[in-house]
Nucleic acid binder design. Sequence first.
DNA 1: ATGCATACATAGATTTTGAATGTATCTTCG
DNA 2: CGAAGATACATTCAAAATCTATGTATGCAT
Lengths: 112, 112
Amino acid sequence: MVSKTLMAASTRPLILAILAGGKNYGYSIIQKVKDISGGHLEWTDGMLYPVLQRMEMENLITSNWKLSDGNRPRRYYTITDKGRDELASELISWRYIWQALKGLTDPLKAGD
Amino acid sequence: MVSKTLMAASTRPLILAILAGGKNYGYSIIQKVKDISGGHLEWTDGMLYPVLQRMEMENLITSNWKLSDGNRPRRYYTITDKGRDELASELISWRYIWQALKGLTDPLKAGD
DNA sequence: ATGCATACATAGATTTTGAATGTATCTTCG
DNA sequence: CGAAGATACATTCAAAATCTATGTATGCAT
């Protein structure tokens, strides 16, 4: 089980990373996260939508409704330039810490 | 600059990882973190001591004072078995998420 | 004696999160 | 047709965790 703080720290970068690969809507993002994490990360919609709203307020993402054929209306989110910058810098931070952790726990291997 | 949430998520695992390598005291832990992160993580003592106290209350670490030669008294922290378990499971979680992030951002390379 | 690094400690204002809850549509299957 | 379950989005606010600000004190160098 992933700790609360780690969950909190990873939510935004994961959302940004997913949207960097193409626009997407809330419900689908949840499934993609579950998918890409091998089932270890299971988000609820109740936690995701507020996060998406906050990220939109911060201009990391934008949204627009799309009504198609037989489907329910969906709100699609798109990453902004600011969002891409944020993602890039988050990834750098994650790398620092991950490498610090690895360096401490197995000092012999270097790896990535 | 490392984000607040990421900072929060990494504090405990880093402390545990350091103590897994041998007992240590607060001030020295701060320097070790700075050192191992290449200067990217700079903790303040004011944020560390409360964390250490909470971790001790949760039995992840124990502490005892050591008064030596010309030095000031220092409170040395030791990792417990429970702490080692915690560290191990945190590392697993970190790996999941790091790999999910990497998988999303550069889908071609696998790596570790 | 002055300044700086070392060393530990506490309180509590502030922020943040996400669980709980609500609404509604689409699909499937008997 | 009707029921059940998956899909889809939305809001509120109680509860909890963090760490900034602040305080104390010693060792060492010059």
